[in-house]
């Protein structure tokens, strides 16, 4: 069902590959060439505070002045609840106002607040068909910290490049939550100019008290977090605990060193 992604913990580099320092220099130079439209030489980064994830992302965190895509996997593709919580968690760890562009008003603000995104920080815009132009308008405004937009269906390469440029110019974080009526819609995997692309799927969580599996109750939710595309980095996949009330992802203790394993083996 899912492609086999390269494993994040690549074994030690063979001697003929460039040294890590040289590689970093090269990456910086490439980044400067790529960022022709940026006002600032370097973009700021938001680390996840999760060593495995930050280790895979170039620079050690999520670049802020850039376009990112997030989608839920499987039956949640339509409502994108897990993807929305994941994004809310990222925004919770930033400061300042956020514009949230909606296609249909099914977002429930108390749920976002539960992930740490305070209601006073969010401005909602119901744009129905004009999602992308509204998002671009928001990205041109440097007063915003982030612009989140929900998009059902196709995203053309040109449209995504426009958004990426606008985000880069003003240093505003741009996030597209991709939704679709069909599960794991291949349209969501078509190439775009987004810097990273995330896919979030719920995986079975362990019982709240692992020693007493019959105790009723609900522990923290668990996600399989797939980084399916990352500019200047490699695809990767982790099992994490869903973000808490401050937007932080939790480390899964029983899967700490087996992050690329299948969910079924992790949760037993």
């Amino acid at each position: 069902m899912f492609p086999n992604f390269p494993q994040p913990g690549v074994p030690a580099a063979p001697p003929d590959l460039p040294l890590p320092g040289q590689l970093r220099d090269l990456r910086e130079r490439v980044a400067i060439i790529e960022r022709t439209h940026s006002r600032t030489a370097t973009t700021s980064l938001l680390p996840f505070g999760h060593a495995d994830i930050d280790g895979v992302l170039p620079g050690g965190g999520l670049p802020l002045g850039a376009l990112h895509e997030a989608a839920s996997a499987g039956p949640d593709t339509e409502h994108a609840a897990a993807a929305t919580l994941f994004i809310a968690g990222i925004l919770a760890r930033l400061e300042g106002p956020v514009l949230w562009v909606l296609e249909q008003p099914d977002l429930f603000a108390p749920g976002l607040a539960g992930a740490g995104l305070h209601p006073d920080r969010v401005l909602y815009a119901e744009a129905s068909k004009a999602v992308l132009s509204t998002m671009e308008e928001g990205l041109h405004h440097a007063g915003l910290t982030a612009v989140v937009a929900e998009l059902t269906g196709r995203l053309s390469l040109v449209a995504s490049r426009r958004l990426q440029l606008a985000a880069e110019q003003n240093g505003v974080l741009a996030v597209l939550i991709r939704r679709s009526r069909s599960f794991d819609d291949p349209v969501l995997q078509q190439p775009s100019a987004a810097v990273t692309r995330w896919r979030i799927a719920g995986v079975p969580s362990p019982p709240p008290l692992p020693e007493f599996p019959d105790t009723p109750g609900l522990g923290p939710a668990r996600w399989r977090l797939d980084l399916t595309r990352c500019r200047g980095g490699e695809a990767a996949s982790w099992i994490v605990e869903a973000c808490d009330a401050t937007g932080r992802l939790g480390v899964v203790s029983d899967a700490a060193h087996r992050s690329d394993q299948t969910p079924a083996r992790v949760s037993t």
Binding site: P97, Y124, E126, A127, T134
Partner: peptide, 29 residues
């Protein structure tokens, strides 16, 4: 030369002008 970060008035005007005032809102508990 960076614009004042807290000034979102212009953005609110332009989005309300484009989408309609009722479709731009905040949510309060």
């Amino acid at each position: 030369d960076a614009p004042s970060p807290s000034d979102v008035t212009q953005l609110v005007d332009r989005l309300a002008n484009r989408l309609g005032e009722s479709r731009l809102y905040r949510i309060e508990p």
